[in-house]
Design a protein around this nucleic acid. Structure first.
Lengths: 147, 147
DNA sequence: TTACATGTAATCAATATAGTTACAAGTTTG
DNA sequence: CAAACTTGTAACTATATTGATTACATGTAA
């Protein structure tokens, strides 16, 4: 019915959390793919994005990824920006070329773009207030509750 | 680079504002399309959604649409929901079938879905606080400033 | 040098968007 | 009534993104 924000974001969170849980082991792309349940190449693409954003350390030929920052210093907003799911100020698309001869057509973009931007920023602010540490702690809690 | 929220939303806002500005005239789909700068059939599809949501009144065969509520009683959230750009709780997609044998795979969905939902609701709250009346007033202001 | 891992390009099926054509059904007017 | 016009929709197209997958070059280590 509509196209939502790419699951690369959710997968990115999954990957970072799992690297933490497996910090004493080797988190190869194949290992991570096994938990996410997808293809190692897809995982490597996302790892590349996380690396480029400075969230993890990976090196060609060397198996495994490590977090490049402390858990509490990686927010979901960092991940969201890293995996390129949404561009700044472009979550909403606005029709272009409205008729400039019409008062509405002439002004609609300038009127709604700041509003849509505010909405997007509100969303991003929520993501900025949650860290991977919070996610990891919640997973631990849920796991304890189920056992 | 990525797929953003459909411009149906922006077009819906445009349409409702224009119906207001043209309240003494006849806002046919052709007239509205001229301002949005697109096809009348596309406009009629969106008008159908706005009608179904109770935001406007249109009748087969009779030219023109009218607002079904007062300006200050139509929020951008109403429009956003009317034109079906995003489903409840599904702005973000989450990968399915993560591996249940892994502590992260087993719990990741339950952990992040509420967070993503909170972010989506924060966005929607902003939209709920802006009415078509605000948009219309802002257009009038901008127009006066430019003349 | 063999085995294995990462990095990345290329391809594919499925699906959403925006635009468009076409036409049935309803309404008004001449 | 008939002509002209409008809405309501279905169907189709081109374009673009997603997620998955294959393939392979490059890098590392036993």
């Amino acid at each position: 019915m509509f196209m939502s924000i790419s699951s690369r974001f959710a997968v990115g969170i999954h990957i970072l959390s799992l690297i933490e849980f497996n910090k004493d082991g080797v988190s190869s792309s194949e290992y991570l793919a096994g938990s996410v349940n997808t293809n190692p190449a897809l995982i490597r693409r996302i790892l590349g994005m996380l690396k480029k954003a400075g969230l993890i350390e990976v090196r060609p030929g060397i198996a495994g990824s490590k977090l490049a920052r402390s858990l509490s210093d990686i927010t979901l907003l960092d991940v969201y920006k890293a995996v390129d799911v949404v561009q700044d100020n472009e979550l909403f698309s606005v029709h272009d070329n409205p008729n400039p001869k019409c008062i509405v057509g002439k002004n609609i973009q300038d009127t709604i773009i700041p509003i849509l931007s505010t909405a997007q920023l509100a969303l991003e602010k929520v993501l900025g207030n949650v860290t991977i540490e919070d996610v990891v702690k919640d997973i631990v809690e849920k796991e304890e509750r189920h056992s």
